[in-house]
Amino acid sequence: MKASQIILIVVGIVVVTAVGYMFTAGETPEDYIEKIEKERERQYKFIRFNIDSPLTEEQKAKFASLTFYDIDPSYKVKARLLPIENKKVREVPLTDGSMQRYIEHSYAEFELGGKTNKLLLLQAMDEADKRNFFLAFADETSAKETYGGGRYLNVRQDGKNSITLDFNLAYNPYCAYNPDYACPIPPKENLLDIAIAAGEKNYKE
Protein backbone atom coordinates (compact mmCIF):
# COMPACT_ATOMS: atom_id res chain seq x y z
CA MET A 1 0.00 0.00 0.00
CA LYS A 2 1.36 3.41 -0.98
CA ALA A 3 2.11 6.05 1.64
CA SER A 4 -0.43 8.38 0.03
CA GLN A 5 -3.14 5.73 0.42
CA ILE A 6 -2.26 5.21 4.08
CA ILE A 7 -2.46 8.94 4.69
CA LEU A 8 -5.88 9.08 3.04
CA ILE A 9 -7.10 6.19 5.18
CA VAL A 10 -5.82 7.83 8.37
CA VAL A 11 -7.40 11.14 7.39
CA GLY A 12 -10.65 9.34 6.69
CA ILE A 13 -10.61 7.66 10.10
CA VAL A 14 -9.94 11.00 11.79
CA VAL A 15 -12.81 12.65 9.92
CA VAL A 16 -15.23 9.83 10.75
CA THR A 17 -14.15 9.90 14.40
CA ALA A 18 -14.58 13.66 14.56
CA VAL A 19 -18.03 13.52 13.01
CA GLY A 20 -18.97 10.68 15.34
CA TYR A 21 -17.83 12.73 18.31
CA MET A 22 -19.97 15.67 17.17
CA PHE A 23 -23.08 13.54 17.14
CA THR A 24 -22.42 11.33 20.17
CA ALA A 25 -20.56 13.47 22.67
CA GLY A 26 -21.74 16.88 21.54
CA GLU A 27 -20.11 18.68 24.45
CA THR A 28 -17.11 18.43 26.73
CA PRO A 29 -17.51 17.54 30.42
CA GLU A 30 -16.66 21.16 31.23
CA ASP A 31 -19.38 22.42 28.87
CA TYR A 32 -21.88 20.06 30.45
CA ILE A 33 -21.10 21.21 34.00
CA GLU A 34 -21.30 24.84 32.93
CA LYS A 35 -24.71 24.22 31.31
CA ILE A 36 -26.11 22.64 34.48
CA GLU A 37 -24.67 25.42 36.66
CA LYS A 38 -26.29 28.07 34.44
CA GLU A 39 -29.64 26.31 34.69
CA ARG A 40 -29.34 26.18 38.47
CA GLU A 41 -28.50 29.88 38.58
CA ARG A 42 -31.53 30.63 36.40
CA GLN A 43 -33.69 28.54 38.73
CA TYR A 44 -32.37 30.38 41.78
CA LYS A 45 -33.07 33.79 40.25
CA PHE A 46 -36.60 32.77 39.32
CA ILE A 47 -37.36 31.51 42.83
CA ARG A 48 -35.72 34.53 44.45
CA PHE A 49 -36.94 37.39 42.28
CA ASN A 50 -39.71 36.43 39.86
CA ILE A 51 -43.23 37.64 40.49
CA ASP A 52 -44.49 34.10 39.74
CA SER A 53 -42.18 32.52 42.33
CA PRO A 54 -43.93 30.21 44.81
CA LEU A 55 -42.17 31.99 47.69
CA THR A 56 -44.02 34.57 49.72
CA GLU A 57 -42.44 38.00 50.07
CA GLU A 58 -41.41 37.05 53.59
CA GLN A 59 -39.72 33.90 52.32
CA LYS A 60 -37.95 35.82 49.56
CA ALA A 61 -36.47 38.21 52.10
CA LYS A 62 -34.78 35.30 53.88
CA PHE A 63 -34.02 33.18 50.81
CA ALA A 64 -30.30 32.65 50.23
CA SER A 65 -29.87 29.64 47.96
CA LEU A 66 -31.22 26.40 46.59
CA THR A 67 -29.54 23.14 47.55
CA PHE A 68 -28.42 20.59 44.96
CA TYR A 69 -26.47 17.37 44.74
CA ASP A 70 -23.07 17.66 43.08
CA ILE A 71 -23.33 17.45 39.31
CA ASP A 72 -22.85 13.82 38.28
CA PRO A 73 -22.87 13.02 34.53
CA SER A 74 -23.71 9.37 35.27
CA TYR A 75 -27.25 10.55 36.08
CA LYS A 76 -27.73 11.71 32.51
CA VAL A 77 -29.09 8.60 30.83
CA LYS A 78 -30.30 7.65 27.39
CA ALA A 79 -33.62 5.86 27.71
CA ARG A 80 -35.52 3.66 25.29
CA LEU A 81 -38.88 5.14 24.36
CA LEU A 82 -41.64 2.54 24.64
CA PRO A 83 -44.86 4.01 23.18
CA ILE A 84 -48.23 3.16 24.72
CA GLU A 85 -50.35 1.90 21.85
CA ASN A 86 -53.76 2.67 23.34
CA LYS A 87 -53.13 6.07 24.87
CA LYS A 88 -55.50 7.03 27.66
CA VAL A 89 -56.23 10.13 29.64
CA ARG A 90 -54.91 9.85 33.19
CA GLU A 91 -56.39 11.88 36.01
CA VAL A 92 -53.37 12.68 38.16
CA PRO A 93 -54.13 13.61 41.78
CA LEU A 94 -52.77 16.92 43.09
CA THR A 95 -51.62 17.63 46.61
CA ASP A 96 -54.83 19.52 47.39
CA GLY A 97 -57.04 16.56 46.43
CA SER A 98 -58.05 17.88 43.00
CA MET A 99 -57.19 16.20 39.69
CA GLN A 100 -55.30 17.22 36.56
CA ARG A 101 -55.66 15.45 33.22
CA TYR A 102 -52.68 14.18 31.24
CA ILE A 103 -52.21 11.80 28.34
CA GLU A 104 -50.37 8.55 29.13
CA HIS A 105 -47.91 8.74 26.25
CA SER A 106 -45.06 6.26 26.68
CA TYR A 107 -42.49 4.71 29.00
CA ALA A 108 -38.82 5.59 29.28
CA GLU A 109 -36.73 2.49 30.04
CA PHE A 110 -33.14 2.94 31.19
CA GLU A 111 -30.30 1.40 33.14
CA LEU A 112 -29.34 3.04 36.44
CA GLY A 113 -28.47 1.85 39.92
CA GLY A 114 -27.47 -1.56 38.60
CA LYS A 115 -30.93 -2.37 37.25
CA THR A 116 -33.43 -1.64 34.51
CA ASN A 117 -35.94 1.08 35.42
CA LYS A 118 -39.09 2.30 33.67
CA LEU A 119 -40.89 5.61 34.10
CA LEU A 120 -44.23 6.77 32.71
CA LEU A 121 -44.07 9.88 30.53
CA LEU A 122 -47.14 12.09 30.65
CA GLN A 123 -48.13 14.78 28.19
CA ALA A 124 -50.20 17.87 28.96
CA MET A 125 -53.58 17.89 27.26
CA ASP A 126 -52.80 21.21 25.59
CA GLU A 127 -49.15 20.45 24.69
CA ALA A 128 -48.48 21.87 21.22
CA ASP A 129 -45.09 20.18 20.71
CA LYS A 130 -45.72 16.43 20.85
CA ARG A 131 -42.05 15.74 21.65
CA ASN A 132 -42.35 17.36 25.09
CA PHE A 133 -43.25 15.35 28.18
CA PHE A 134 -43.76 15.79 31.90
CA LEU A 135 -42.11 13.35 34.28
CA ALA A 136 -42.93 13.26 37.99
CA PHE A 137 -41.02 10.71 40.06
CA ALA A 138 -40.10 9.74 43.60
CA ASP A 139 -37.13 7.64 44.68
CA GLU A 140 -35.25 6.39 47.72
CA THR A 141 -34.08 9.93 48.58
CA SER A 142 -37.67 11.23 48.80
CA ALA A 143 -38.71 12.47 52.26
CA LYS A 144 -35.08 12.19 53.30
CA GLU A 145 -32.71 14.37 51.31
CA THR A 146 -35.29 15.42 48.73
CA TYR A 147 -38.89 16.58 48.81
CA GLY A 148 -41.27 13.88 50.02
CA GLY A 149 -43.80 14.60 47.30
CA GLY A 150 -41.31 13.74 44.57
CA ARG A 151 -39.51 15.80 41.94
CA TYR A 152 -40.09 16.71 38.31
CA LEU A 153 -38.29 16.62 34.98
CA ASN A 154 -39.31 18.32 31.75
CA VAL A 155 -38.07 16.02 28.99
CA ARG A 156 -38.02 16.15 25.21
CA GLN A 157 -37.79 13.31 22.74
CA ASP A 158 -34.41 13.57 20.99
CA GLY A 159 -34.38 10.38 18.93
CA LYS A 160 -36.80 8.22 16.97
CA ASN A 161 -36.98 5.65 19.76
CA SER A 162 -35.03 7.32 22.54
CA ILE A 163 -35.15 10.14 25.04
CA THR A 164 -32.56 11.65 27.38
CA LEU A 165 -33.32 11.83 31.10
CA ASP A 166 -30.95 14.17 32.94
CA PHE A 167 -31.63 13.80 36.65
CA ASN A 168 -29.13 16.58 37.37
CA LEU A 169 -31.99 18.83 36.21
CA ALA A 170 -34.58 17.32 38.56
CA TYR A 171 -36.41 20.12 40.35
CA ASN A 172 -38.90 20.57 43.15
CA PRO A 173 -42.60 21.30 42.60
CA TYR A 174 -43.95 24.61 43.88
CA CYS A 175 -45.57 22.92 46.87
CA ALA A 176 -42.10 22.05 48.18
CA TYR A 177 -41.68 25.77 48.87
CA ASN A 178 -45.24 26.75 49.68
CA PRO A 179 -48.05 24.34 50.72
CA ASP A 180 -50.66 26.73 49.31
CA TYR A 181 -49.82 25.40 45.83
CA ALA A 182 -51.34 22.25 44.35
CA CYS A 183 -48.84 19.95 42.61
CA PRO A 184 -49.16 16.68 40.66
CA ILE A 185 -48.25 13.61 42.69
CA PRO A 186 -45.98 11.07 40.94
CA PRO A 187 -48.00 8.14 39.55
CA LYS A 188 -47.42 4.72 41.14
CA GLU A 189 -45.46 3.64 38.04
CA ASN A 190 -42.85 6.29 38.86
CA LEU A 191 -41.95 5.29 42.40
CA LEU A 192 -38.35 4.16 41.97
CA ASP A 193 -36.69 1.78 44.41
CA ILE A 194 -33.25 3.27 43.74
CA ALA A 195 -31.75 6.52 45.03
CA ILE A 196 -31.48 9.35 42.51
CA ALA A 197 -28.73 11.37 44.20
CA ALA A 198 -28.91 14.11 41.60
CA GLY A 199 -30.75 17.35 41.05
CA GLU A 200 -32.43 19.55 43.64
CA LYS A 201 -32.54 18.66 47.32
CA ASN A 202 -35.27 19.53 49.78
CA TYR A 203 -36.01 23.21 50.39
CA LYS A 204 -35.35 24.41 53.91
CA GLU A 205 -36.14 27.93 55.09
Rank of each mutant, 00 (worst) to 15 (best):
Y102A: 02
A176E: 02
E200Q: 11
Y181S: 04
N202A: 14
N161I: 09
Q157K: 15
Y69V: 02
L191F: 12
P186W: 05
A108Y: 03
H105P: 00
L121A: 07
P173G: 02
Y181D: 03
Y32F: 11
Y177C: 11
V19M: 07
A79L: 07
I13G: 04
K115P: 07
A128R: 06
H105T: 12
I185D: 08
L192V: 08
F46N: 12
N161T: 15
E145K: 10
L119G: 08
G148V: 06
L82E: 15
F68M: 04
L94M: 14
K118V: 04
K144Q: 12
P187Y: 03
E34T: 12
F68L: 03
E189V: 05
V14M: 09
E140Y: 13
K87Y: 00
N117Y: 04
K35C: 00
R151S: 09
E189F: 01
A138K: 14
R80L: 14
K144E: 09
D129S: 01
R42K: 12
S65W: 04
R80Y: 12
P93E: 10
L112V: 02
F49V: 03
R101K: 15
V155L: 06
L153Y: 02
D166K: 06
I196N: 02
I103Y: 14
K130I: 05
D70V: 08
D193E: 14
I84Y: 02
F167M: 05
K76A: 01
L120Q: 07
E41K: 15
H105F: 08
I196D: 02
Y177I: 06
R42W: 00
R40E: 00
D72G: 02
E127N: 00
T17S: 10
Y32S: 03
N178W: 12
P187D: 05
D70R: 11
A64H: 13
R40W: 01
K38P: 00
G114M: 05
K204M: 11
R90C: 01
R48N: 08
E37C: 01
N86A: 12
P29L: 06
A195G: 05
G20P: 05
A61Q: 15
I47Q: 01
N50C: 04
I163N: 06
P179W: 10
A61R: 15
M99F: 09
N178Q: 10
Q123L: 01
G12W: 04
K130V: 08
L81S: 06
G199A: 10
A79R: 07
E41N: 10
F63P: 06
K88Q: 13
Y102Q: 04
A136E: 04
I194Q: 10
D31M: 05
N202Y: 12
A64P: 00
E37H: 08
K130L: 14
F167N: 04
H105D: 14
K60L: 07
L153D: 03
F167T: 01
F134Y: 14
A138Y: 03
K115L: 05
M125E: 13
L82C: 06
E145N: 08
S106K: 11
L81Q: 09
L112G: 01
M1P: 13
K201I: 06
L191M: 13
K78Q: 09
K78M: 02
I9F: 12
Y203W: 13
T95D: 00
Y181T: 07
T164Q: 03
F49S: 10
A124I: 00
T28N: 03
D193P: 06
N202E: 15
V89F: 08
Y203R: 06
Q123F: 04
K60R: 15
